[in-house]
Simulated assay, not measured.
Amino acid sequence: MEKLLRGICDFRRNKLPALADRFRRLADDGQKPDVLFFACSDSRVEPSLIVSTDPGELFMVRTIGNLVAPASDDGVSVGDVSEASAIEYAVHILGVKHIVVCGHSRCGAMKATLAGREKLTAAPNLAAWLAHAEPARERLARSPFISEALPPEDRLSQANVLVQLDHVATFGGLHDLVHGGKISLHAWWFDVATGDLYVLDEERGGYILLDEAEAERVLSGRAAIHHTHD
């Protein structure tokens, strides 16, 4: 807590002056983010730092395992409605054009999924929540592009990103919006040990390191890093 309190003082003294005008504009004009970003609650993953965004540019949801409970046939979440409401707000109110699900290496949620949720006797809510990661096992079995050289939890994590994007697409007419080209879904994966970010390129069949050369490929239209609902 001491670090947080001193950090607030440092922010006010050294960073806020340069951001004061931006905060005033955001207060007056509201937010206009282009991206809805789902990330894990893991403290080692800091999306705004990784993608170098300023306040107002990223609409973010963080959950254990970057999991999103899917919608039932009537469009209501089968789990916590928090993620569902964030999707509906981002798509229908804010008008975002991109939705990213970003997994990461050494994810504790993936380790717990592999170990078996029945071991989480002291955390029944966590065990129930991790049920939304179970389909990643089957997805991994039919995802030959996920490297076998990765540790088991990292392989499951990359497959889990695809499952959660499928869950996202069950809400609010998103399936039609994606196939109509109005919203793009993106599968990203962050390596905590190296700080590298990988993006799924379906045309090349795997997760590709997003370096400057790859970024230029994407921006020029020579690479597609989007995920299509499976």
Results as ranks from 00 to 15, higher is better:
residue 166 D to A: 07
residue 195 G to M: 09
residue 206 G to A: 12
residue 165 L to V: 15
residue 205 G to M: 08
residue 197 L to C: 14
residue 171 F to G: 02
residue 167 H to D: 02
residue 191 D to L: 13
residue 172 G to T: 07
residue 200 L to H: 13
residue 175 H to A: 03
residue 165 L to M: 06
residue 175 H to R: 11
residue 222 R to G: 05
residue 180 G to N: 01
residue 159 A to D: 13
residue 211 D to S: 04
residue 220 S to A: 14
residue 167 H to Q: 02
residue 214 E to Q: 04
residue 164 Q to A: 12
residue 222 R to P: 03
residue 194 T to N: 09
residue 158 Q to W: 03
residue 175 H to V: 03
residue 177 L to N: 02
residue 187 A to V: 10
residue 209 L to F: 02
residue 217 R to N: 14
residue 221 G to E: 05
residue 175 H to L: 12
residue 162 L to E: 11
residue 216 E to D: 12
residue 207 Y to M: 10
residue 179 H to P: 02
residue 220 S to R: 15
residue 164 Q to K: 07
residue 200 L to A: 06
residue 199 V to H: 12
residue 215 A to F: 05
residue 178 V to H: 01
residue 216 E to A: 15
residue 180 G to E: 00
residue 163 V to D: 14
residue 171 F to D: 04
residue 213 A to N: 12
residue 199 V to M: 08
residue 193 A to H: 13
residue 173 G to P: 09
residue 176 D to M: 00
residue 163 V to G: 08
residue 219 L to C: 03
residue 161 V to Q: 10
residue 206 G to W: 09
residue 186 H to N: 10
residue 223 A to L: 14
residue 160 N to L: 01
residue 161 V to I: 14
residue 180 G to T: 00
residue 205 G to T: 15
residue 195 G to V: 09
residue 207 Y to R: 09
residue 218 V to N: 11
residue 208 I to P: 04
residue 162 L to I: 13
residue 200 L to E: 04
residue 159 A to F: 06
residue 186 H to K: 10
residue 168 V to M: 03
residue 212 E to H: 15
residue 199 V to T: 11
residue 215 A to T: 12
residue 205 G to W: 09
residue 176 D to P: 03
residue 203 E to Y: 14
residue 170 T to R: 03
residue 186 H to P: 05
residue 197 L to P: 15
residue 195 G to R: 11
residue 177 L to Y: 00
residue 163 V to E: 03
residue 167 H to T: 05
residue 171 F to R: 06
residue 172 G to I: 00
residue 191 D to M: 13
residue 204 R to C: 11
residue 159 A to T: 12
residue 180 G to Q: 00
residue 161 V to Y: 07
residue 168 V to P: 09
residue 221 G to I: 15
residue 178 V to G: 01
residue 188 W to N: 06
residue 194 T to I: 15
residue 158 Q to K: 14
residue 175 H to F: 03
residue 206 G to Q: 15
residue 201 D to W: 12
